[in-house]
């Protein structure tokens, strides 16, 4: 790898690090929109959807979900685990769904409209 390549990778890494901050909520909400999940499933789903670019620690997910539950954005129901005890299956509440929809409309969909779409793909 040349010096220029290293410089490019360093800058890209720094940009991505900043860009990814604050994204966990979106990935959690999108994964839960797909269907109720327990924490490990949520972790796997986030890694799959983001093609491995977002990796959430289990503790971090628990903490975030507890906070979202407190703020009534997610709820959970108990379901059977594979072999062990019952698991908490998290799902979006109507408030969570409406928040996700508003957020996507305001901040994501604009990337699918002209001229941004063309600029991104060019």
């Amino acid at each position: 790898m040349t010096t220029n390549d290293t410089f490019h990778e360093d800058l890209l890494g720094a940009w991505e690090e900043t860009y990814k901050k604050g994204q966990l909520t979106l990935w959690i909400f999108l994964s839960l929109k797909e269907g109720p999940k327990y924490v490990t499933q949520l972790q796997e789903s986030i890694a799959l959807f983001s093609k491995g670019t977002i990796r959430a620690e289990e503790q971090s997910l628990y903490r975030t979900l507890r906070k979202f539950y407190h703020l009534k954005m997610v709820d959970f129901s108990s379901g059977k685990g594979h072999k062990g005890p019952d698991r908490k299956y998290y799902h979006l509440t109507p408030l969570g769904q409406s928040l996700l929809q508003s957020f996507v409309e305001r901040n994501i969909l604009l990337f699918f409209e002209e001229p941004l779409k063309d600029l991104l793909l060019s």
Partner: peptide, 12 residues
């Protein structure tokens, strides 16, 4: 804060 949680701590 919102619901007792600081606004900057809600979404991570």
């Amino acid at each position: 804060t919102i619901g007792g949680v600081h606004k900057t701590d809600i979404f991570e």
